[in-house]
Design a protein around this nucleic acid. Structure first.
Lengths: 168, 168
DNA sequence: CCTATCATGTAATCCGTTACATGATTAT
DNA sequence: ATAATCATGTAACGGATTACATGATAGG
């Protein structure tokens, strides 16, 4: 049983396994794409390596399908739940970093209008996507994802307003 | 002359060297801390290794102090300026990722009130800091940093409003 | 003087990205 | 059948973080 450090990626995998139950890496990929991936992207390769990493420390258990493709299936263990809970319970004063490429360019003197011309449609499209997700969300979705989505919507609105003002 | 890939870190170093002229790694660290570091943090070690990396590809030139400590000094080269300009000119449709630890916890079911209790003061403090910087900014500061700061202020306001409603 | 803190670096580790590769399904 | 796409992985590389270390300066 190895000691490993738990990263945000680890908690995403643990959290999704808790929400969705036993899953394959590809299943996790689908889950990420439709939810947390909007504000925290992961490479698909990580969804193969991270569960394996978590397994070496006992946070998840790997099984394989018997017949056919013998795909890997991962399930969260009791220890995994405990780690996830500890993380969720601990408070953070850590602040978000606005690591936005466009903002960095703006900072270093890029033409605001040119940036805005690209950012406005991209942000509008993203906002529309969020609103569509919100309006078609099944009733059984827990509050966490709803609230995170709400933050996403607000952020997009703020970004659009900002770039529109810059564009004049 | 090696080929290297230019990362956001690279552009931060190049951009700061353009703004401030020849600098030591420690000088860069100070510059980052007071400006771009608010929305894009760097480890101090990177301000030693990244200029060295950039030097191998000719984007910056390294010299050393003659006497005393023989500290390393870095200056942007013509090629560095060109690379910086190309980057600044190219538009991005890439969107920001809201990689906020607190938001991730919220997504996965953490108690909103507990999170808010930690986030609100932290965000308020950050906002106050931003406003203080804005209000004491010398007149010769270029528009880029001003505009980026403005975005930071808006983001903080949105975050505060969001967490306050959750705490409500 | 002594000790914090500031300043300057190096080395090792490791996570995340990128690239490569191939098996299974579905559509034409 | 064949091509395209979906699904499932592995391997290499490299940038970022972390840890270690030491020299200079200032404060008490």
């Amino acid at each position: 049983m190895q000691e490993i450090r738990l990263t945000p990626t680890s908690y995403i995998v643990l959290g999704l396994l808790e929400l969705a139950g036993e899953s394959t890496p590809y299943g996790l990929k689908q889950l990420v794409a439709g939810s947390v991936g909007y504000f925290w992207t992961l490479q698909h390769a990580q969804l193969y390596t991270e569960p394996e990493r978590l397994a070496t420390a006992g946070y998840v258990k790997e099984t394989r399908e018997e017949g056919g493709r013998r795909r890997r299936l991962y399930a969260i263990t009791a220890e995994g739940r405990r780690a996830l809970d500890d993380w969720r319970t601990g408070t953070t004063t850590e602040l978000a970093e606005l690591r936005e490429p466009a903002l960095l360019k703006l900072f270093f003197g890029a033409d605001p209008k040119a940036l805005a011309a690209a950012q406005i449609p991209a942000n509008r499209a993203r906002l529309a996507e969020y609103e569509q997700i919100r309006d078609s969300m099944p009733d059984d979705v827990p509050p966490g994802p709803r609230q995170a989505l709400e933050m996403g919507i607000r952020f997009e609105r703020a970004a659009i307003a900002f770039w529109e003002e810059l564009a004049g």
